[in-house]
Design a binder for these strands. Structure first.
Lengths: 144, 144
DNA sequence: CTTTTATAGATTGTATACAATCTAATTGTA
DNA sequence: TACAATTAGATTGTATACAATCTATAAAAG
């Protein structure tokens, strides 16, 4: 019987390695926009739907305030978002895009295509991977 | 045409999210061993082949000295490895398992199975994912 | 045999992740 | 209505990641 502790036998490692590899390839594309990869994800969420609470953004990205509070403060310092308390419920803060934050969307629009070419992955592989991962995500969430 | 900036359209996000989710599920399994997830990966590499240089370990895990030096110092402080200069070429350090480090392997052996059950993923899905990711990794490395 | 170049690790600085705890605001309830 | 329980964020502390730089050593070039 084969060694269950071989690195290549672990399901975990490919995810860990590929995730970091992809992040690394985003870097040169995001640098001109002044964004890191997690900051880019937050902007994606806000471009879809402006004026969300930290909690809502966090649920979308599976990140908590420990990660998001400093990250959002950086985006605020960059002039891309504003953080204001919700007057209806002062426990919530509303994250709102500034004009600059909205404008950045135009520059970001070219990134998905540029990344696809940088990764050199075919449309079919892309689709296969996406479906496989979605199945896995659903199953994993089911065991929460 | 659909919005190319939708979070769900990004190839990157599922990898990012699943990778972190898997790491999180390892935590309770690794805590009794006193290991973090990246530390566990380093131990896997050393259990396969003892007495490797930092560089060799790093190539296997795609990590550089900036990450590995402090991590290995922690493993050394935990009494699991030793770091000694290679007398033949003093630029290299050899990472060697201590008796405790070798013994920990026995306790680690149950982890892969425990994790599979924790993830609740079937063998078929596991195999499908592994194959899909391997294909993707190969293609991505091809564009380095 | 010097001088240059390359290499392996260590260090520094920035940016996540995330558990654990704290604080303020809101809700539920006796 | 007081008051306990909940909730959203902020904070603290630890552990990665990784680019950039530094240092010591070895190899290559002249």
């Amino acid at each position: 019987m084969s060694n269950p502790l071989l690195l290549e036998e672990q399901l975990c490692f490919p995810f860990y390695a590929i995730s970091r590899e992809i992040t690394k390839r985003y870097r040169p594309l995001l640098e001109p926009l002044g964004l890191t990869y997690p900051q880019y994800l937050v902007m994606l969420v806000l471009w879809e739907q402006d004026q969300q609470s930290l909690k809502a953004v966090g649920e979308r990205l599976h990140l908590d305030s420990g990660t998001l509070t400093p990250l959002l403060k950086k985006l605020e310092a960059s002039g891309l978002v504003e953080r204001v308390k919700n007057p209806v419920d002062e426990r919530h803060i509303q994250i709102t895009l500034t004009a600059n934050g909205q404008a950045l969307r135009n520059e970001a629009e070219q990134i998905p295509l540029a990344l696809k070419e940088l990764l050199g992955v075919s449309d079919e592989d892309m689709e296969l991977v996406k479906q496989t991962l979605n199945r896995l995500t659903i199953k994993m969430n089911g065991t929460d």
